[in-house]
Computed example of a mutant assay.
Amino acid sequence: MITRLAEDLTLRGIAVEGIHDLGKSADGKSNGHLFEMDITTNRVDAMNHFGIAREAATIYNLPLAPSTPNSLSAPWSTPHSPSASPPKPQASAAASPPRSSATSPSPPAQPA
């Protein structure tokens, strides 16, 4: 099945250049396989994991759930309470107009 997927992806423009076995875990289960792929610039739809999964689902006519991040389960997120007030903006030390990165030449001095 692994080599069949590689062949089918290659036929559809996602060149699978190698398949690497990731070995077995301590309990004897397979750690899966790593696919080495060459994705051309005209296949921007396949330049991420979800794009490859979408292509595989299309090849085999399988359903694919949309990718939706779950911010509450992410380790870096904090729970949001609807009753909590939003954070107050920080006051800046001094308001100054934005600087231009290009300097404009000074006008020539006028004779007196």
Rank of each mutant, 00 (worst) to 15 (best):
S71P: 09
T41L: 14
M47V: 01
T58E: 10
D21H: 06
W76Q: 03
P86Y: 02
T68Q: 15
T58R: 15
A94Q: 01
K24R: 10
E36S: 14
N48M: 06
T10D: 04
I14R: 00
A112Q: 13
R12Y: 00
H33Y: 15
G18W: 00
S81W: 03
S104C: 06
S25R: 07
N61K: 15
S83I: 08
A46Y: 00
F50M: 02
R4A: 14
F35G: 12
I19S: 00
Q90L: 15
N31C: 09
Q110V: 13
H49P: 08
T68K: 15
R54L: 06
N31Y: 09
N42T: 06
G28N: 07
S83Y: 07
L62R: 13
S67F: 10
A15T: 05
L9D: 01
G18K: 06
D21V: 05
D8C: 05
A94C: 05
P86W: 06
R4V: 12
V44P: 06
A56W: 02
H20E: 12
H80V: 15
R4W: 07
D38M: 13
L34H: 12
P98S: 12
H80G: 11
A74D: 12
L22Y: 01
N42P: 03
I19Y: 01
G51A: 03
S96F: 04
T3G: 11
G23V: 04
A74M: 11
D45L: 08
P79W: 10
S101T: 13
P108I: 04
A102M: 11
L62I: 08
A91S: 06
P89E: 08
R99K: 15
A84S: 15
H80A: 14
S85R: 13
S81D: 11
P89G: 08
P79A: 10
S100P: 03
S81V: 01
P105D: 07
Q90Y: 11
A93D: 00
S77V: 09
A112L: 14
S67A: 14
I19F: 02
M47A: 02
L34D: 06
E55F: 03
I2G: 13
P107T: 08
A109F: 02
I52V: 13
L22D: 05
P86R: 09
Y60I: 10
N42S: 14
A94S: 09
A109N: 06
A46I: 03
K29H: 11
A53V: 04
P97I: 08
F50P: 01
Q110L: 13
I2K: 13
M37Q: 06
M47Q: 10
A65I: 14
S106N: 11
I2N: 07
T3F: 05
Y60P: 11
N42H: 10
I14D: 06
L34R: 15
P75R: 09
P107L: 08
K29I: 04
D45T: 03
G18R: 06
M1A: 12
L22I: 00
K24N: 04
G18D: 02
T68V: 15
D38A: 14
R99S: 14
L62Q: 08
L9H: 02
A93E: 02
S100K: 14
L11P: 00
V16R: 02
N42G: 12
L62A: 15
K29E: 07
L22N: 02
N31T: 05
A53L: 10
V16G: 00
A26S: 03
